Simulated assay, not measured.
Amino acid sequence: MAMPVLTSYFFEDLALGMRETIMKTVMESDVVGFAQVSGDDNPIHLCDVYAAKTRFGQRIAHGLYTASLISAVLGTRLPGPGAVYMSQTLSFKAPVKIGDVVVVSVEVVELVEKGRRCRLHCEASVDGQVVLDGEATVMVPGRPKERAPEPAPGQPAKTEAA
Rank of each mutant, 00 (worst) to 15 (best):
M27K: 14
S125A: 15
V104P: 03
S125F: 00
A162T: 09
E160P: 00
P144N: 12
T159G: 05
E28N: 12
D48N: 09
S38Y: 10
C122D: 03
F34P: 09
A15C: 05
S91D: 06
R117N: 04
A67S: 13
R147F: 11
L69W: 13
R19F: 03
R117A: 05
M86W: 00
V26H: 07
R59P: 15
V96N: 09
S68L: 04
D100S: 11
V73I: 03
F11W: 13
P153D: 13
E135L: 07
H121K: 13
H62K: 08
P81S: 12
K24G: 02
G128W: 03
L64Q: 07
G39E: 06
R59V: 14
V106M: 01
G115D: 04
R19Y: 00
N42E: 00
E146C: 00
Q155M: 15
S71T: 08
M27A: 14
C122M: 09
L6V: 11
T7M: 14
G33F: 10
G75E: 06
F92V: 08
D48I: 01
K97W: 03
V104Q: 06
V103Y: 00
T54P: 10
P151N: 06
I22Y: 03
E123R: 15
R116K: 14
D48V: 10
K114H: 13
D100W: 05
